[in-house]
Nucleic acid binder design. Structure first.
Length: 279
DNA sequence: CTCCTGTCCTGCCGGC
DNA sequence: TGCCGGCAGGACAGGA
């Protein structure tokens, strides 16, 4: 799914057009996705205006003018599509939620695998309720520092790969960007978290990978699209993800000897890494 | 607590 | 061509 850079790309598109729009119509085409859609969703959204669109980890927070927040999580395959006014959107069998606005435009939540989540909460106290009360710091915010990460990893025997996937340690990373960040930092994904010596370098690697990905509009694998229907470009900049057997882009190791980028399975997910560069 | 595995669901790809 | 197993960007529950 969309990890932080993809979610941020979608949020930016939403924030550029949605504020000021008033909900006139909400249609749910099934009971829910991972969890049931909020009860009374249609009536609670009707007449509300969108104030702003924020992001928290991989969640999109759509603030409404009455203090409610419409929350989207895209799961593995979720998409948010923004349809301009006066254009009839093509129907798709995985369009599960459609929100129509006063200018005749629409927001469509499409999700083939239905791992996505839609919540409607009160903004006040949002950070005190699940799942927001379990999230660690945002990787691009100031409180995500070397000392913080070192403390968070202390005593953890689990592999650094798994630790960085843990949203309570740092919120927003997924399989792709963990692989890429560990490559940039030169850290073996199998290394026990407590044995990572230079957390500061890892923090900087995470930041630089995420920032570069956001600048590229995220990554497109298979069919991820941003809210305008466009593909991201960062997949062309992957150093290791999906590149098993290919040469490491930034080390002089002999591919004939090393076999190039390696692929292993950790916690049931593929990990890609350079066995020469990452120790 | 930490950690590890299984599970939710559909679609796509490669192999036979 | 068609069928089938394996795998996929996430996050949780439950048990050791």
């Amino acid at each position: 799914m969309p990890e932080l850079p993809e979610v941020e790309t979608i949020r930016l598109a939403m924030a550029s057009v949605l504020p000021g729009r008033q909900v006139v119509h909400t249609e749910t085409r099934r009971d829910g996705l991972r969890v049931p859609f909020p009860s009374g969703l249609e009536i609670r959204l009707k007449g509300r205006r969108i104030v702003s669109c924020d992001r928290l980890a991989k969640y999109i927070l759509t603030h409404l003018d009455d203090g409610q927040v419409l929350v989207f999580h895209l799961g593995m395959s979720g998409r948010i599509l923004l349809h301009p006014a006066n254009r009839q959107p093509d129907q798709d069998r995985h369009d599960h939620l459609v929100i129509g606005f006063d200018d005749d435009s629409a927001l469509i939540f499409n999700d083939p695998r239905r791992f996505g989540i839609v919540l409607l909460e009160q903004n006040a106290g949002l950070s005190c309720i699940h799942p927001f009360n379990t999230l660690g710091p945002e990787p691009l915010e100031e409180d995500f520092t070397g000392p913080y990460l070192a403390a968070a990893l202390k005593g953890r025997k689990t592999a650094i790969k798994a630790a960085l996937m843990d949203q309570s340690i740092v919120a927003g990373l997924g399989n792709i960007y963990v692989c890429e960040a560990l490559y940039v930092a030169g850290i073996d994904p199998k290394r026990p978290a407590q044995e990572v010596r230079d957390a500061e370098t890892l923090v900087r690697a995470i930041r630089s990978v995420l920032e570069a990905a956001i600048r590229s509009g995220g990554s497109t694998l298979r069919d991820y699209r941003n809210a305008d229907g466009n593909a991201g470009r960062f997949q062309h900049n992957f150093s290791v993800y999906g590149r098993a057997g290919k040469p490491c882009p930034d080390c002089s190791c002999d591919i004939g000897r090393t076999g190039g980028i390696g692929r292993i399975s950790q916690g049931g997910r593929s990990t890609f890494f350079c066995p020469e560069r990452q120790r």
